[in-house]
Design a protein around this nucleic acid. Sequence first.
DNA 1: GGTGACTGTTGTCGACGACAACAATTGTTG
DNA 2: CAACAATTGTTGTCGTCGACAACAGTCACC
Lengths: 176, 176
Amino acid sequence: MRPTRRRDVPTRAPQAGIKTGPDRPATKKRTIAAPDDDVGLDGLAGHVGYAVRRFQLWIFQDFIKTLAAVDITPTQYSVLTVVAANPGLTQMAVAKRLGIERARLVHLLDALEQRNLVKRAASKTDRRSHSLHLTAAGEASLRQFKLLAAEHERHVIDKIGKDNRDRLLEILAPFR
Amino acid sequence: MRPTRRRDVPTRAPQAGIKTGPDRPATKKRTIAAPDDDVGLDGLAGHVGYAVRRFQLWIFQDFIKTLAAVDITPTQYSVLTVVAANPGLTQMAVAKRLGIERARLVHLLDALEQRNLVKRAASKTDRRSHSLHLTAAGEASLRQFKLLAAEHERHVIDKIGKDNRDRLLEILAPFR
DNA sequence: GGTGACTGTTGTCGACGACAACAATTGTTG
DNA sequence: CAACAATTGTTGTCGTCGACAACAGTCACC
C-alpha cells in the first residue's frame, strides 16, 4: 500500500487519453545530461512577479551566504543601516521606513541589542518611544558588514552585469 | 510604569548629545503633509536586494488583490499554469520547475484538488508518482484566472511603464 | 535478489507578515 | 483640568512559507 493515508482522493483510474509524457526522470544521475529543463512555463514566462520572485530568492540566498560568517540577515542589515544613518530614530519610524511591522521590529531589535550592536534609549521628548542608536561595537561591526554586503553586490553584478544592475536600481527606485 | 515587562534593557539615561530629532509625528493627521519621508536609507539605496524585496512585496499584494475574487495566490497560479502547459507532469517535476519543495507542493495540490481544479492520477509507468492534470473545471477556471492575471500585469505596467517592464523581464530571464 | 536511490507524504522547526489586545503615555478638546 | 482619542512599544496568535528529517512504497541496477 501507499504511505498509509493517501487523503480521500478517489484514486480514480489513470484516465487514459491524455498524453502522460514519459514521466521524465528529472534526475541528472540516471540520464547523464538529460534535457531536464524542457518543462514549459507557458504564460508564466510573461509575468514579472514570477521572475522577480525567483530573482529575490536567489539574491537573498546569496546575501545570507555571503554574510554567514557574521550571521546577519538582509533584514537585520537594513535595520542597522537605517539606524546608523539616522541616529535617534523611533522604532515606529524605522518600521515604517523599512516596511516592517512594529511587532516584528521588536524581536529584531531584541536580537540586535543582545548582540550589543544597537541600544534603545529613552526618548527625551516622548516617554513612550525609544530612540535608537548603534553602539560603538555596532558601528565597527557595521563597517565590516558593509564590506561583505559590497561583496554580495559584486556577486549580483557578476550574475546580471553591471549595466543591468544599474538599470534594475533605476527601475525599482520608486519602491524606495 | 511601562508595559509591565520591558525586557532587561538597562533603560539607561537618555544619552544627551546625539540629535534625537523631533520624534516626528509620522502621522498625516497631526502635521498635515509633513515631510515624513526624509529618513535616509544610506547605503541601502544602492542594494538591489532591498529594492527587489520592496518591489516583490508590492507585486504580490497586487496579484492577490486582483485575483481575490477567485481566491488564487501567485503560487497556486504558477502551479496551475505549469500543469496546464505540461499535462501528466510529476509532482517532483513541477516542484523542481517552480522551485517549490516537494513537501510544500503536497499541500498546494491538496487544496487545488479539493477545489476540483487539479487531479492526481496514478502514473502508468511509475507506481510511485502521480501524473498531474487539470480537470475540465480547472481548464475553464484557469482561463478566467489568466484574464485577471493579465489585468494584474497591466497594473505593473501602469506602475513602472511598459518599457521598464519589458526590460525587467529581459534582465530577470536567466532566473527562469 | 538485494541494495541504493527516488517519490509522495507527514511532521517539525524557524522566519515572517497580518492582526488583535494591552499598558503607558501623549495631545486634544470640551 | 478632566475626559477621550490616538500613538508607541510590547506580547501573543494565526496562517504562510522554506528547510529538514523521517518513513513507506517503489524502482533501477549490479
